[in-house]
Amino acid sequence: MALKASDLKVGDTYSERLVEDLKRTQIVMYAGASGDYNPVHTDELFTKKVAGYPSVFAHGMLTMGMTGGMLTNYVGDGRLTKYGVRFTNQVWPGDDLDSTATVKELRQEGDDMFVDLDVVTTNQDGAVVLSGYASARIDG
């Protein structure tokens, strides 16, 4: 279901819990589907002994992918026109992630209406793990 410009105002928010107690198996699934087999995401021995991190950690793109699910649930299927993020903290097995989209601007381009969103995903300690933006075409 697409968003309607007349139902939206600047400052509106939409939030979802993305994951509770992130499992290593989900990180393995992401490695397999995306093709990014960097051992820092799935290989505890390598990651501790060679890479120097306390455990494996999620692909930034897994967090971006989960956050993308929140966005498409909000704006509707096939409506995103832009989506970009910075990865600001690593995501670890066991993390709980929550994500919020905030309406920043409603604008018209030709006959089409768009919403610009700020996007933030945080972990259970309130640390921002991903921050970015998205734009979507909405109904007038």
């Binding site: 960097n38 051992p39 390598f46 930034g60 793109m61 832009k82 989506y83 970009g84 993020v85 990865f87």
Partner: peptide
């Protein structure tokens, strides 16, 4: 993505 030698993914835009 990263690399074995300390590479990490900093940003991604579509």
């Amino acid at each position: 993505g990263g690399g074995g030698g300390g590479g990490l993914h900093a940003e991604q835009h579509f």
